[in-house]
Amino acid sequence: MPAKLRDSLPYWVTLAVSAYLYSVAMDIAAPGTGDQLGPDFWPKATLILMMATCVAGILKAMAGSRDHSPLPLIEGTPAADEHEPSQRYPWLLLVGVVLCLAYVLLFETLGFFLDTFLFMLAFILVGRYRRIGIAIATCLAGSLVFMFVFMKIVYVALPIGAPPFSHVSLLLMRLFGIR
C-alpha cells in the first residue's frame, strides 16, 4: 500500500464511521423543540467537526506532511519517545485479544473463579512466561483473593457460573463464608 494512503487510512475509516453516525443522528427524534436547539444538535455538531478534522488529516497525509514524528516538548530536550520498537508480534496481540474476548464470553458460564484462573494462566503463558508452577500458583492466589475481597468485603455479586461449573464457585463460597 502506498505510504500516503496508509498514513491517511485511519482518517478515511474515521470519516466513514462519522458519516454513518451522522446518518443515524438524522433520525434522532426532536418532538416540539420549536425555536430551540433539539437533542440532535450537539451530536450532529460534533460529527461535523470530526468529519472536517478527518478531511484535514487526509489532506495532510496526502500532502505527505507527517506531523506525528516525536518532537521534544521544548528546545534543548530530547523527545520522550525517540525509538520505534525494534520488533512487533502481531500474532501475540491477536491471541491476546482472542483470550480477552473469550474471558468475557465465558464469564457467566464458567463463573468468576474458574474463568479468571484459566484466563490469567493462558495470558501469562501467551506473554512468554514459562515457569508453569509459579504461574499456576499466582493465578490461583489471584483468583481466590479477588473472589474473597469482592464477594465478601466489597459485596459485588460476581457470577458463579452455570452447572456444573457453579459447583466449584459454590464450594469456594462456602469455604470463605460468603452468602
Binding site: 490469567m120 495470558f123 501469562i124 503463558l125 506473554g127 512468554r128 489471584g142 479477588f146
Partner: peptide, 10 residues
C-alpha cells in the same frame, strides 16, 4: 511483565 499484565486485565 506478563504476570503484571494479567493482573491489570483482572
Amino acid at each position: 511483565e506478563s504476570i503484571t499484565a494479567a493482573f491489570v486485565i483482572l
